[in-house]
Deep mutational scan, measured.
Amino acid sequence: MPVRRGHVAPQNTFLDTIIRKFEGQSRKFIIANARVENCAVIYCNDGFCELCGYSRAEVMQRPCTCDFLHGPRTQRRAAAQIAQALLGAEERKVEIAFYRKDGSCFLCLVDVVPVKNEDGAVIMFILNFEVVMEKDMVGSPAHDTNHRGPPTSWLAPGRAKTFRLKLPALLALTARESSVRSGGAGGAGAPGAVVVDVDLTPAAPSSESLALDEVTAMDNHVAGLGPAEERRALVGPGSPPRSAPGQLPSPRAHSLNPDASGSSCSLARTRSRESCASVRRASSADDIEAMRAGVLPPPPRHASTGAMHPLRSGLLNSTSDSDLVRYRTISKIPQITLNFVDLKGDPFLASPTSDREIIAPKIKERTHNVTEKVTQVLSLGADVLPEYKLQAPRIHRWTILHYSPFKAVWDWLILLLVIYTAVFTPYSAAFLLKETEEGPPATECGYACQPLAVVDLIVDIMFIVDILINFRTTYVNANEEVVSHPGRIAVHYFKGWFLIDMVAAIPFDLLI
Results as ranks from 00 to 15, higher is better:
A160R: 09
E118K: 04
I123W: 11
G236L: 07
K93S: 13
N339K: 12
A97N: 06
A244H: 14
I96Q: 06
A290T: 15
G6R: 01
S182C: 12
P258V: 09
I333L: 12
A223F: 04
R77P: 15
H221E: 12
D144E: 11
R5S: 09
S263L: 09
P114T: 01
P347D: 04
R281A: 15
R4D: 13
L200W: 06
G149E: 10
G294K: 12
R181N: 06
V295E: 15
L171V: 10
E91F: 09
M218A: 15
R326Q: 09
L311G: 11
E289G: 04
H309I: 09
E90L: 13
E130V: 11
D219E: 06
A40T: 10
P72N: 03
P241H: 15
G314Y: 08
T174H: 12
V41M: 06
S283W: 01
A160S: 10
V131N: 06
K93F: 11
S263N: 05
G314H: 06
S278V: 11
P241Q: 12
C276T: 11
D346M: 05
A156T: 15
D119Q: 15
M133P: 15
S278L: 11
V279I: 14
S207N: 06
V374P: 01
Y43H: 02
S153Q: 06
M291N: 07
F348E: 07
L349K: 14
A160H: 05
D342I: 02
W154Y: 07
Y99H: 15
E357I: 07
K332G: 09
G53D: 01
R159M: 14
K362F: 08
E274D: 15
M133I: 12
D287K: 13
A40S: 14
L212R: 07
A360V: 15
L170E: 08
L107T: 10
A32M: 01
E91M: 09
A204T: 15
C66W: 01
E274C: 04
V377N: 07
N317S: 07
S379N: 04
S304V: 14
S250L: 01
S239V: 07
M124N: 06
M308G: 11
S284N: 07
P157T: 13
L107W: 08
F340R: 14
V41L: 04
L51M: 14
G381M: 05
V138T: 14
V113T: 08
I336N: 07
R35C: 06
H368V: 10
C64E: 01
A190F: 03
A350S: 12
V3L: 13
L267K: 08
A260W: 12
A57H: 09
H143E: 14
S263G: 11
L380R: 04
G314L: 07
M218W: 11
N369T: 12
C108Y: 01
Q84V: 05
L107M: 07
D259A: 07
S178R: 15
A382G: 11
V295L: 15
L109I: 08
N45L: 01
A175K: 14
S313M: 14
K116R: 13
L51G: 01
D46Q: 09
Q81F: 10
E134C: 09
P205S: 14
F348P: 12
T74K: 01
T13I: 06
D111S: 09
Q247I: 09
A382I: 06
R164K: 13
G71S: 01
T367N: 07
S351V: 05
L170T: 11
C52A: 13
Q11L: 11
A307W: 14
L69K: 01
P151R: 12
E177D: 08
R269G: 12
L311V: 12
L210D: 08
F125Q: 12
N45Y: 01
R76Y: 11
I96P: 01
L385S: 09
E134K: 13
F106L: 01
S206W: 05
E134M: 06
R20E: 09
L338K: 09
A268M: 06
E91W: 13
P157V: 07
Q81W: 05
R312K: 14
S140N: 11
A188N: 06
G381C: 15
F340V: 15
V113R: 10
D355E: 10
A32V: 03
L338I: 04
Q376S: 09
P299V: 05
T371I: 13
T74S: 01
G381K: 05
P249D: 04
R280S: 15
L380C: 07
V196Y: 04
P114I: 01
A169F: 06
C276W: 05
P297D: 12
V325A: 14
I82P: 01
